[in-house]
Amino acid sequence: MNPQTTPEASDSENPISIPENSVLDLQKVSISYSGNPAVNGVSFPIAEHKITSIIGPSGCGKSTLLRSLNRMNDFVDGVTLDGQILYMGQDLYGNDIDPVALRRRIGMVFQKPNPFPKSIYKNVAWGPSINGYIGSMDELVEQSLVQAALWEEVKDRLHESALGLSGGQQQRLCIARALAMSPDILLMDEPCSALDPISTAHIEDLLFELKSNYTIVIVTHNMQQASRASDYTAFLELGNLIEFGTTRQIFTVPQQKRTEEYVTGRFG
């Protein structure tokens, strides 16, 4: 279960566990907002079919980092990115890469549920339909909703407005919406922060089930969530990567004092 851990020969001195199959490789990624640095030279890999969580105190740049992984930062004025993010060896920010097409492969779930003010069905079907999906839409919608563990609750009211769903259901709908594109990678930006504990448990269960088919990167400041749900954990503080490793390692034998203090809840 645990991937092998080998010391990494890089500018950071701490040993880093390297996953064998990485789909995304962050290489010295620095991001700044009109000159103000938000993320400084962060490097770590994202393992295929695993859950990687990014943790850290608020304002540490974890959401900014996550949003750079499907180029959502392109919509914020004045954001610049240095370094490379490699997707299967290709630079996400290469000149010839189409950010629109890219987002089909790297989906995203946001902090607050943001269903479109359309029917449940249309929410799921919209992404595939604009992207020219030619298979059976009904099947795809059902399959996506089943995957998001929402089908049983909504199958009789697919054509009602998504705004009538509860917060937890809305968030699962947003997950279904992202899954309908069958992305390679699913980015989740504190997906449970606006939800009650029961809905949160629902979504965490869901994460485990999705793992076999998807690579998931989740930003959270909920320590339990990170330790329960993820395979790898990256700890960020003030835009710097303090430590990256298997989740067990980070939570049981952290190499850095700051990490230990954070995961044991002494600050943050």
Partner: peptide, 17 residues
């Protein structure tokens, strides 16, 4: 709300869509 735009862009939509 801007979150709706972001949600749509994250599905690979163009600005027109």
């Amino acid at each position: 709300p801007d979150t709706l735009r972001q949600g749509a862009y994250a599905l690979g939509a163009t600005s027109f869509e």
